[in-house]
């Protein structure tokens, strides 16, 4: 019980308060403490945790392949790709082969996923902008004004359009965003304090 519950809460309390105090101390000793706890410990723990991560990755996909689950072919591709990148990196010491894999395979795949976002935005916008009620109609009208105003057409149709867009973005839109952000800030601080004080323990499995 002590090892599983009390000790983690004690560690969270001590480190949490130390980090809180550290923020207000500009002395090099304080910076050093931050460097050790946040940078070095974090990197060390992170590196070791990847062992567990890849154990999980391989066991998950190997099991899918063994059981011939739906789409197991993708698991084979995932395992082969992970091994290819790892072997490519270690064997060539991140040389040309690894760079080629990264530049001509990995980066374009990432870019492809990101570029898909444009189509998803279009389909989501189409659904969101249907004028079902007063609020949705207001959203539709505002969105259409902002979209037209952001392109040269808006300025062409009416000189005052860019100023109107600027006002929508910096006054009503910004006011709503700041309202949410103030709530987020207070909520984040409250959550951090609850964790430091040991009031919130759900994240370690306890209540």
């Amino acid at each position: 019980m002590f090892i599983r519950r009390t000790l983690p809460i004690l560690i969270a309390f001590c480190i949490g308060f130390a980090m809180l105090i550290q923020y207000f101390i500009p002395h090099p000793y304080s910076e050093r403490f931050y460097d050790i706890v946040v940078q070095q410990w974090f990197i060390t723990i992170y590196a070791f945790m990847f062992i567990f991560a890849y154990r999980s990755f391989f066991s998950h996909h190997i099991r899918k392949v063994k059981r011939r689950k739906t789409g197991y072919i993708f698991s084979i591709i995932a395992i082969a790709s992970a091994l290819l990148m790892a072997v490519g990196g270690f064997a060539t010491r991140r040389g040309d082969f690894f760079d080629s894999l990264y530049n001509y395979l990995y980066a374009p795949l990432q870019a492809t996923m990101f570029s898909l976002l444009a189509f998803f935005i279009a389909s989501a916008a189409f659904r969101a902008f249907r004028a079902r009620n007063v609020q949705a109609t207001l959203l539709l009208v505002t969105a259409v004004i902002v979209m037209i105003g952001r392109v040269p057409l808006g300025d062409y149709l009416w000189r005052g359009m860019p100023d109107l867009i600027e006002w929508i973005m910096t006054v009503p839109s910004m006011a709503a965003m700041r309202g949410i952000r103030i709530g987020v800030g207070l909520g984040a601080v409250a959550t951090a304090m609850k964790i430091i004080l040991g009031v919130e323990r759900t994240y370690m499995g306890g209540t």
Binding site: I180, I182, V184, L186, G187, A190, K194, V199, E200, T202
Partner: peptide, 28 residues
């Protein structure tokens, strides 16, 4: 936003966690 942080208290029903939301409201 903040509802995400309040969710734990909301779901658990733990009075100590719910009461902390009151502190957030006073802060606001």
């Amino acid at each position: 936003g903040e509802e995400l942080y309040a969710a734990s208290a909301y779901l658990s029903g733990d009075p100590r966690l719910i009461s902390s939301i009151k502190a957030q409201d006073w802060g606001k």
